[in-house]
Amino acid sequence: MTKKVLVVEDNELNLKLFCDLLRAHDWSAEPVRDGREAVARAREVEPDLIVMDIQMPHVTGYELILALKADLELRSIPIMAVTAYAGRDDEDRIRSAGADAYVSKPISLARFMEAVNGLA
């Protein structure tokens, strides 16, 4: 059975890259361009993993992680943050919000898939 991943990313090129990369590795990728739609889409899709940007308009990745982890139906879904924030404090803050993994941009394709497969 193909595993599903919800990809939350406002940058169209990154969204396409992440979805194409996941699909090339036999994942079913569901794109979401706006963090405000992510919780509802997660309920619909019931993903095995959520990959999300941290720096998004309207709803930050931090806020989204907190909302997902506060939701009884969604809190057990692993979250991988993908962000241009690269400092140690940033990673600690992202993980303390509830992210299970962290990959910095620009991404290494191998490191991205290694992190995804580590959460599967």
Results as ranks from 00 to 15, higher is better:
1 M>N: 06
1 M>H: 10
2 T>Y: 08
2 T>I: 06
2 T>H: 07
3 K>M: 11
4 K>L: 03
5 V>S: 03
6 L>V: 04
6 L>R: 03
7 V>L: 07
8 V>G: 00
8 V>T: 08
11 N>L: 14
12 E>T: 14
12 E>L: 12
12 E>W: 09
13 L>Y: 13
13 L>K: 14
15 L>E: 06
17 L>I: 12
19 C>L: 10
19 C>Y: 04
21 L>D: 05
23 R>F: 06
25 H>K: 15
25 H>L: 07
26 D>K: 13
26 D>Q: 15
27 W>I: 07
28 S>C: 04
29 A>S: 07
29 A>R: 03
30 E>T: 13
30 E>N: 14
31 P>W: 01
31 P>D: 03
32 V>I: 11
32 V>D: 00
34 D>F: 02
35 G>Y: 01
36 R>M: 14
37 E>R: 05
41 R>L: 02
42 A>P: 01
42 A>Q: 01
43 R>E: 05
43 R>W: 06
44 E>M: 06
44 E>Q: 11
45 V>F: 00
45 V>N: 04
46 E>W: 13
48 D>H: 15
48 D>T: 05
48 D>W: 07
50 I>C: 01
50 I>W: 01
51 V>P: 00
51 V>I: 15
54 I>Q: 01
55 Q>A: 12
55 Q>G: 07
56 M>R: 05
56 M>D: 06
56 M>S: 05
57 P>V: 13
57 P>E: 06
57 P>A: 08
58 H>E: 12
59 V>C: 03
59 V>P: 03
59 V>K: 03
60 T>M: 06
61 G>N: 00
62 Y>T: 06
62 Y>L: 13
63 E>S: 05
63 E>N: 09
64 L>A: 04
64 L>Y: 05
64 L>C: 03
69 K>Q: 06
69 K>H: 09
70 A>H: 08
71 D>R: 01
71 D>P: 04
72 L>R: 11
74 L>W: 06
74 L>I: 09
75 R>T: 10
77 I>R: 01
79 I>E: 00
81 A>C: 11
82 V>P: 01
82 V>Y: 01
82 V>S: 03
82 V>E: 01
83 T>C: 11
85 Y>Q: 13
85 Y>K: 10
86 A>I: 09
88 R>T: 14
89 D>I: 09
89 D>A: 12
89 D>G: 08
90 D>Q: 10
90 D>H: 12
91 E>N: 03
91 E>V: 09
92 D>T: 12
92 D>S: 13
93 R>C: 10
93 R>F: 08
94 I>E: 01
94 I>K: 01
97 A>D: 09
97 A>L: 08
100 D>P: 02
104 S>L: 10
105 K>T: 11
105 K>R: 15
106 P>I: 14
107 I>H: 06
108 S>F: 13
108 S>P: 09
109 L>T: 15
111 R>H: 14
112 F>A: 09
113 M>K: 13
113 M>E: 07
114 E>N: 15
114 E>K: 15
114 E>Q: 15
116 V>T: 03
117 N>C: 07
118 G>K: 14
120 A>N: 08
120 A>S: 12
